Simulated scan of single mutants.
Amino acid sequence: MKNEIDGMFLLTVFAKIEKNGTAVTNDLGAGFTLEGITVNSGFDGYEVYFDNGKVQLTLGFHNQWNTTAENETEYDEFVKMLNNIDKKY
């Protein structure tokens, strides 16, 4: 999987989803959803979560991130969704 995303990009997309999305409550608590991506923040604010139903990406302290993508196709689709939100909003 290509490392084509960084912490600043993820935080920018998170803010756009938070601003333009619809409020939701899920297993992680209060969050927002926009165009198939749901975001939540950790209880201490040091982690943010992105989820599209197939892939979950966690951005943690010092901009380190990891993902549950099972293959490159899922990951690429997820990144495409993030890029679309970034460009559109």
Rank of each mutant, 00 (worst) to 15 (best):
K19A: 14
F32K: 12
E72W: 00
G31H: 07
G53R: 06
T25N: 15
T33L: 10
W65V: 00
T12Q: 09
L34I: 05
F32W: 14
T67L: 06
G42W: 09
T12K: 10
T25V: 15
E4Q: 13
D51R: 09
N26I: 12
K80V: 04
F61P: 01
N52R: 03
E47K: 11
N3P: 07
M81E: 08
G42E: 11
V55H: 04
V39C: 05
N84Y: 10
V13D: 03
Q64C: 00
G7C: 02
V55G: 01
V48L: 04
Y89N: 12
G29V: 12
L34K: 12
F43V: 08
A30E: 14
Y75N: 03
E74P: 07
E72Y: 05
A30F: 14
W65L: 01
Y49D: 01
N63D: 15
F78P: 07
N71C: 07
Y46C: 10
F61H: 03
D86S: 07
E35C: 10
G45H: 02
E74L: 09
Y46P: 05
I37N: 07
E74H: 08
D27K: 10
T73Y: 07
Y89I: 00
Y46M: 08
L28G: 11
T58H: 00
K80A: 14
F32M: 12
N20I: 00
G53E: 05
E18H: 13
E70W: 00
N26C: 15
F43Y: 12
G53N: 06
E70Q: 01
L10Q: 06
T73K: 09
T58E: 03
N66W: 09
L11W: 11
G21Q: 02
D86N: 08
F61T: 02
N26V: 13
H62R: 06
E70F: 05
G42S: 15
D27N: 14
T12L: 08
G60I: 01
Y49K: 05
T38I: 09
E18R: 11
S41E: 13
E74W: 04
Y75L: 12
T33W: 12
E70L: 06
W65R: 02
F50I: 03
Q56N: 09
F50V: 05
E77D: 09
T38Q: 10
D51M: 05
G7K: 03
N20F: 15
T12E: 12
M8I: 15
V39P: 00
K19Q: 13
A15I: 04
N40T: 10
T67K: 06
N84S: 14
T58I: 10
G21C: 08
N71G: 11
G21W: 02
